[in-house]
């Protein structure tokens, strides 16, 4: 199971689940841990979380499919979430989304052919004073311009 979750975390979740009264409360944590390690949550990841916490797979699945930041399908190495809520919309968010689709050569819900980026829309990121905004992984970028986006994407490509 090492490709889904490091053994040390497997042991930690098993121990914590056994020690608490309500192991269900660890489902979101465990799904996030699998995703952080594996990139997304495959069926085997759902089964692993269920087994570690001693809950039913369906109880994990109904959580995994509810939250939009848990991925049940393969994604690229970096997931780009572009805000399409009202403040970013009012500040040129549509043009930012169009620029990202153009430079990445993909539409929303797609992954670049090199497996580097997946592009998804998201609701408000809580960066309304710095609209338009996007989030890559867990990092938020604000006051976006096409030039700024190009530099940010280059930074991620060079790090790879």
């Amino acid at each position: 199971m090492s490709e889904l979750l490091p053994q040390v975390q497997v042991n930690a979740f098993r121990a914590k689940a056994a020690a608490i009264e309500h192991p269900h409360e660890l489902i979101v944590d465990a799904l996030r841990a699998v995703q952080a390690h594996h990139g997304w949550v495959p069926d085997a990841g759902v089964d692993l979380v269920a087994e570690l916490l001693g809950v039913l797979p369906v109880e994990v699945e109904e959580i995994a499919t509810f939250y939009d930041k848990i991925f049940r399908r393969p994604v690229g190495k970096r997931v780009i979430h572009v805000c399409d809520s009202i403040c970013c919309w009012a500040d040129g968010g549509d043009a930012i989304a169009a620029h990202l689709q153009k430079v990445l050569g993909i539409g929303f819900g797609e992954t670049t052919s090199d497996g580097m980026f997946t592009l998804l829309p998201t609701c408000c990121l809580g960066a309304c004073g710095e609209a338009p905004a996007m989030m890559i992984g867990l990092t938020t970028f604000g006051t976006l311009t096409p030039e700024k986006i190009d530099a940010i994407l280059d930074g991620y490509r060079n790090e790879a």
């Binding site: 309500h22 192991p23 409360e25 489902i27 979101v28 799904l31 939250y67 939009d68 930041k69």
Partner: peptide
């Protein structure tokens, strides 16, 4: 892990419970 509805207090409680 996302979703606006979690800000509703009883949805938040369900979310915390897993």
């Amino acid at each position: 892990a996302g979703r606006y509805i979690l800000g509703e207090e009883t949805a938040l409680i369900n979310g915390l419970e897993g």
